[in-house]
Structure formats: C-alpha cells, structure tokens
Simulated assay, not measured.
Amino acid sequence: MGSLRGLRLAAGSYFRFCERDAFSSLRLTRNSDLKRINGFCNKPQESPKPPTHTYGHRVPLHKPTDWEKKILIWSGRFKKEDEIPETVSFEMLDAAKNKVRVKISYVMIALTVAGCVLMVIEGKKAAKETSLLTSLKLERKLV
C-alpha cells in the first residue's frame, strides 16, 4: 500500500515537472500572442515529395476451417456454405465471431430471465403447498 502511494506521488511530481517545462517554452509577447521557443531555425517547410514507388498493401487472407465457415453462416455474412470464398480476411472472420458472440450472449440473457421467472413461480407454488401441509398438521394435533 505504501509503495503504491509513493509511486502515485512520484508520478504526480513528474507530471508537474513536465507541465512546468511545457509552460516555460511558451512566453507572452507584446502582442499578447503565445509564441513557442523551440531553438530551431524558422526555415519555411519544403513540401514533401511524393514517394517514387507505391506500396501494395494486401490484406492477409485466411482459409476458413469448417467451424469458421459455420460461424460465417450463423453471423449472416453468407447464406450457404457454397458462397464462402476459398480465403477470407481476418477482419471479416473477427466481425463474424463478434456477431455470433453477441447473439449467444442475448440467448443467455433470455434464458437467465426465463429461469428466474420459472423459479419465482415454482417458489410460490411451494409456499402454497407448505402452508397447506402445515395447516393439515395443526388440525391433526388439535384432534
């Protein structure tokens, strides 16, 4: 606990130090404009030259397994397994997995709510039965 406090104090003092340095590099001029003092000469910036060659960014592709094909179908990306191409991008596969994950979580939420309602109904039935049994036992003892 003490080391965490010391770490927090050290981090705070470091940020105050950085903040002080940042404000010392700014000074107010007579026109009350902020001017940055950075120690570099003020040469006009030359326009960057366009690259002479272009890079071909290819998205890495992945051959889906049978399970991943089922996930792609369940997520609604494709209607049939025949429509799925030989290779798919990882982004498409991740999006399909996330969609299926969300659908499964919705089903789990619905099952949890249905289970809670069922347990409340069963509990009320059990409470009525126990009250009936206790009244019968009391009548026996009185007779």
Rank of each mutant, 00 (worst) to 15 (best):
K35W: 15
K35Q: 15
R36F: 12
I37G: 09
N38L: 08
N38A: 12
N38W: 08
G39P: 02
G39I: 02
G39M: 01
G39V: 02
C41G: 11
N42M: 10
N42Q: 12
N42C: 14
N42P: 05
N42V: 10
K43G: 15
K43S: 09
P44M: 11
Q45R: 13
E46L: 13
E46Q: 14
S47Q: 15
P48N: 02
P48A: 05
P48G: 04
K49E: 04
P50Y: 00
P50R: 01
P50T: 00
P50F: 00
T52L: 01
T52K: 00
H53I: 02
T54C: 00
Y55M: 01
Y55V: 00
Y55R: 00
G56F: 00
H57G: 00
R58D: 04
R58T: 06
V59W: 06
V59H: 10
V59M: 08
P60G: 04
L61E: 10
L61Q: 08
H62P: 04
H62A: 03
H62M: 05
P64C: 02
P64E: 01
T65Q: 01
T65C: 01
D66K: 09
D66N: 06
D66P: 06
W67S: 15
E68T: 03
K69D: 06
K69C: 09
K70N: 10
I71E: 03
I71M: 04
L72H: 00
L72C: 07
I73H: 03
I73S: 03
W74C: 12
W74H: 13
S75C: 07
S75L: 03
S75T: 03
G76N: 03
G76D: 02
R77H: 13
R77C: 15
F78L: 05
K79W: 11
K79Y: 08
K80N: 11
K80D: 15
K80Y: 15
K80L: 10
K80T: 15
E81N: 11
D82Q: 10
D82A: 12
D82T: 12
E83L: 07
E83V: 07
E83I: 09
I84M: 04
I84H: 01
I84G: 03
P85H: 01
P85K: 05
P85S: 03
P85C: 04
E86L: 10
V88D: 01
V88W: 00
S89N: 03
S89L: 04
F90T: 11
F90A: 09
E91T: 13
E91H: 11
E91L: 14
E91Y: 14
L93G: 01
L93N: 02
D94Q: 09
A95T: 09
A95E: 10
A95V: 12
A95C: 12
A96D: 02
K97P: 05
K97N: 07
N98P: 07
V100F: 02
V100G: 04
V100D: 02
V100A: 02
R101C: 06
R101T: 11
V102Y: 12
V102Q: 14
K103M: 10
K103Q: 15
I104F: 08
I104L: 10
S105W: 08
S105K: 11
S105L: 13
Y106S: 13
Y106V: 08
V107D: 07
V107I: 12
M108P: 07
M108F: 11
A110G: 06
A110S: 12
A110C: 07
L111Y: 12
T112A: 07
V113T: 03
V113I: 13
V113H: 07
V113N: 07
A114C: 06
G115P: 06
G115S: 10
G115V: 04
C116L: 15
